[in-house]
Design a binder for these strands. Structure first.
Length: 823
RNA sequence: GCCGAGGUGGCGGAACGGCAGACGCGACGGACUUAAAAUCCGUUGGGAGCAAUCCCGUGUGGGUUCGAUUCCCACCCUCGGCACCA
């Protein structure tokens, strides 16, 4: 007997061939190209674009596969969906690669993009690649420069001195993330604080509006909270302490406090080491000590200074100021627990009612005076600071003011006396966009010997990055040493000028990329205003929560700024936001090379297919909670897809079934449509897959029992395919074609369920005694209350439980249960 | 310290205040096979019992309720974020 080695090829699920076939076909047919004039309602669904690191790892898949499924779902539901993709291609790794391997950042980046684009395509995504943008392309970054100039004209961009992390060995500024325990991550030199001229965007002008989330439809509460904390709005009072007795130009020290009611408890004053008055007020016999302290404080990195559990340090400067409320003289200290960057850089110290001041006072033996009554206070010394509110004492005319009126009473008093005023202070500072790096957008500014700071005229944009820069590990930007780039003519007077050699933070690129996607090849403007009006804002945005306060906040700021410049007509860039979680290794640990738990998606795709990988990633668990990879799990997913395949290719023509089973199949089908639809609407991809698995299990039972006719079978399988299409697009397209349905399944309308057809004629009535399950009865769904109770009380198991006790109550929940309460 | 999210079988996870553990992984048993792989079928929270059945179980302790994984209070862990912001 002839032994066939394997089943005929046409009947096996050959994922490799099928996926290649349909990826080719979809591209050929331009299935995913989005038309701007499509009459269907628009839906702009965006996923955060990647940095082209060179390899699409499993984390990328975890971000993009569920997104792709949701986009496909929305298309089938009848939306004209804009789903674009691009590359966030400026940034440090390219430059480091240049320094380490001698390959130009441009070459490195473009090679990575090419490779990732191909890997992307193996997911089978719906991206309209004609709209791809690459932010390191001059056609893109010229508009960064253009926006910069618009901001400059409108006082939203400015230059100022700012303290930065400076590595004296590398001769460069480091980002906060590059400073580890106060040392340069590359050469381990102690990092210094240094004041440098930097460019800023005036995001603080929008602080209050950024706190208003009312224009958003659906954002995670967590992200809003993080942004709220980041902006850090606090209402307080600015008070004035007198130093006129020193005869300086400055007559006062201004302090910001949120607790003006504690002002009579001030026993000393603290200035930040960077405070300009430190130098002027320090007594001659204190000079040496104070200077040494300030020097040491400035060397400590911000990270070091901000660690709260450090012992408070500081020194007296040998001067005093006068508390305007009670005329008391209080000594002035310099201490690094006070930050120049917040409030006024000076703090009125109230040790009795502030933990930090309390710690400092303890250490230096300074007096503590209670002015707010703690509950159950015995009038004695405090063991720790009392930071709550309470009736004011030791506060002169304000004595006796109750805690709930204290703030306003003191603020009113201060304003009436002209010694203070209500102010709002923010934690957020302006956005520092200068980077001393090559691989970024050149800031379009020249410094003219005659005219000073001159913006590059718009018609001279873009200021191009020179290709022939040299990449040496000096730490200095290749732009600064590139003579051809630096030396230029002043656009105003034609005289000699030097170009700005700093480049822009890459978050500038991502602050408006969503706008570029509507018209990525627009030549005369950053985007086509009509198309932006038609497509924007983004209806649904997905991406990692790590961008909660950087990218997302910057982007909101950018949008609001552009609105005020008349460039866009809406307030928020992203109406809905969904944050996916993080994919972990099989050992439930973060994936890392050192742990050896990194999963290479290319290998798994080759072995089991893209559909198995993407479906498994969605099945792991709730998308926003992340989850762990599992080799066994993805294998199981592959098994299920093979079962779907088997169902899809069966020939049902010989079936001839019974009416009851047909109705049941229809019921299960409509229930499944309902479950899958609501799950996909809510980004619940895991239960979406479960529902489809249960559906296929039911279909297999039906098939084994031969209980339905061919038409019923075909109709149910057709629905299965449509429902599975967004999740496993290649497999379904193939089965769809083999079943003889019109191409493409991805252009079919989404199935609609009918609640009546999904309704069970019979239900399982749960019988409880005292809330514990005792029996289950199959009854008609429209059973009357009396009948249900009667059946319950007649149940043998109920009778045995009730025996010898009294029935006190019978609770009936229609369609659900009967609970017999006995006692 | 503060702010989030979370704690459910061996594992990932399901469950409008109403049958806890859907679905899957793993494990065990069986079928097919010379054998294995693959595939298919069955069992699978713990305990008692020959069995019908019963008891215990959703981090811990209370509370609300006829009924709590679900709501409230307190606490303990885990993970994320922020962290001297006056």
């Amino acid at each position: 007997m002839a032994q066939p080695k394997r089943k005929p090829r046409t009947n096996a699920y050959d994922h490799g061939a099928i996926e290649a076939k349909w990826q080719r076909r979809w591209a050929q047919d331009e299935l995913y190209q989005v038309a701007d004039d499509d009459p269907r309602p628009k839906w702009y669904e965006l996923v955060m674009y990647p940095y082209p690191s060179g390899d699409l790892h499993i984390g990328h898949w975890y971000n993009y596969a569920p997104y792709d499924t949701h986009v496909r779902f929305m298309r089938m539901r009848g939306y004209n969906v804009l789903a674009p993709m691009g590359f966030d291609s400026f940034g440090l790794p390219a430059e480091n690669a240049a320094i380490q391997h001698g390959v130009h950042p441009y070459e490195w980046t473009m090679a990575n993009i090419e490779r990732m684009r191909e890997q992307f395509k193996s997911i089978g995504p719906v991206f309209d690649w004609r709209r791809e943008i690459v932010t390191s392309d001059p056609e893109y970054y010229r508009w960064n420069q253009w926006f910069f100039l618009q901001f400059l004209k409108n006082d939203l961009a400015y230059r100022a001195k700012a303290p930065v992390n400076w590595c004296p060995s590398c001769q460069t500024v480091l980002a906060n993330e590059q400073v580890i325990a106060g040392r340069c991550e590359r050469c381990e030199t102690l990092v210094e604080r240094r004041d440098l001229e930097q460019w800023f965007f005036r995001i603080t002008r929008y602080a209050d509006e950024l706190l208003d989330f009312s224009g958003l439809i659906d954002w995670p509460e967590k992200i809003k909270t993080m942004q709220r904390n980041w902006v850090g709005r606090s209402e307080g009072v600015e008070l004035v302490f007198d130093i006129a007795h020193y005869g300086l130009d400055e007559k006062e020290i201004r302090v910001f406090t949120t607790r003006p009611d504690t002002v009579h408890g001030v026993t000393f004053m603290v200035l930040a080491p960077e405070h300009p008055l430190v130098e002027r007020l320090t007594a001659s016999d204190r000079k040496a000590g104070v200077e040494a302290y300030v020097r040491q404080a400035r060397q400590a990195s911000e990270i070091e200074r901000l660690s709260a559990d450090r012992e408070k340090s500081g020194v007296p400067i040998g001067a005093h100021c006068v508390n305007p409320f009670n005329g008391e003289e209080v000594p002035i200290f310099v201490a690094d627990y006070v930050l120049m960057g917040y409030g006024t850089g000076a703090v009125m110290a109230v040790p009795a009612h502030d933990e930090r001041d309390f710690g400092f006072a303890r250490r230096l033996g300074l007096p503590v005076r209670v002015v707010v009554t703690p509950p159950d206070w015995d009038g004695g010394d405090l063991a720790e600071a009392y930071t709550g509110y309470g009736t004011m004492v030791n506060s002169g005319v304000l004595d006796g003011t109750p805690g709930d009126r204290a703030f306003d009473a003191v603020a009113d008093y201060a304003e009436g006396q002209g010694i203070g005023k209500r102010v709002v202070s923010y934690r957020m500072r302006d956005w520092l966009i200068s980077r001393q790096r090559y691989w970024g957008t050149p800031i379009p500014i020249v410094y003219c010997d005659e005219c000073g700071v001159v913006p590059v005229p718009e018609d001279q944009l873009p200021v191009l990055l020179p290709q022939d820069a040299e990449f040496k590990p000096t730490g200095e930007s290749p732009l600064a040493s590139h003579q051809g780039f630096v030396h230029t003519d002043c656009p105003q007077c034609g005289g000699h000028a030097r170009r700005e050699t700093d480049t822009m933070d890459t978050f500038v690129d991502s602050s408006w990329y969503y706008l570029r996607f509507v018209s990525p090849h627009e030549k005369d403007a950053p985007f086509d205003p009509a198309l932006a009006a038609a497509w924007c804002p983004v209806d649904q945005y997905t991406g990692g929560a790590e961008h909660a306060v950087m990218h997302l906040l910057y982007c909101r700021f950018f949008t609001k700024a552009l609105r005020d410049l008349g460039i866009v007509a809406f307030d928020e860039p992203f109406l809905r936001l969904f944050n996916q979680g993080v994919i972990l290794g099989e050992d439930h640990d973060k994936m890392s090379k050192s742990r050896g738990n990194v999963v290479n998606p290319d290998n798994v795709v080759k072995r089991l297919g893209s559909d198995a990988v993407r479906t498994f990633l969605m099945f792991i668990g709730p998308w926003d909670q992340g989850g762990s990879w599992s080799d066994g799990g993805v294998q199981g997913m592959s098994r299920w897809l093979n079962r779907v395949w088997a169902i899809g290719i069966r020939d049902p023509s010989a079936l001839d079934g019974a009416r009851q089973a047909v109705e049941e199949l229809q019921r299960v089908t409509h229930k499944t449509i309902r479950r899958v639809t609501t799950d996909l609407e809510r980004f619940q991809f895991n239960t979406n897959v479960s529902a489809l698995m249960e559906f296929t299990n039911h279909l297999n039972r039906v098939w084994d029992a031969r209980s339905v006719d061919a038409a019923a079978w075909r109709s149910a399988v057709k629905t299965l395919l449509a429902l599975l299409a967004p999740t496993a697009p290649h497999l379904v397209e193939e089965l769809w074609e083999r079943a003889g349905y019109p191409y493409s399944v991805h252009q079919q309308p989404w199935p609609v369920w009918d609640d009546d057809l999904a309704r069970d004629p019979e239900i399982t009535l749960v019988i409880q005694v005292n809330g514990k399950l005792r029996d289950k009865l199959i009854v008609s769904a429209d059973i009357a209350e009396e009948e249900a109770k009667e059946l319950a009380l007649k149940s043998e198991r109920v009778l045995s439980q009730v025996a010898g006790k009294q029935v006190r109550r019978v609770v009936y929940v229609p369609g659900k249960l009967v609970n017999v309460v006995v006692g």
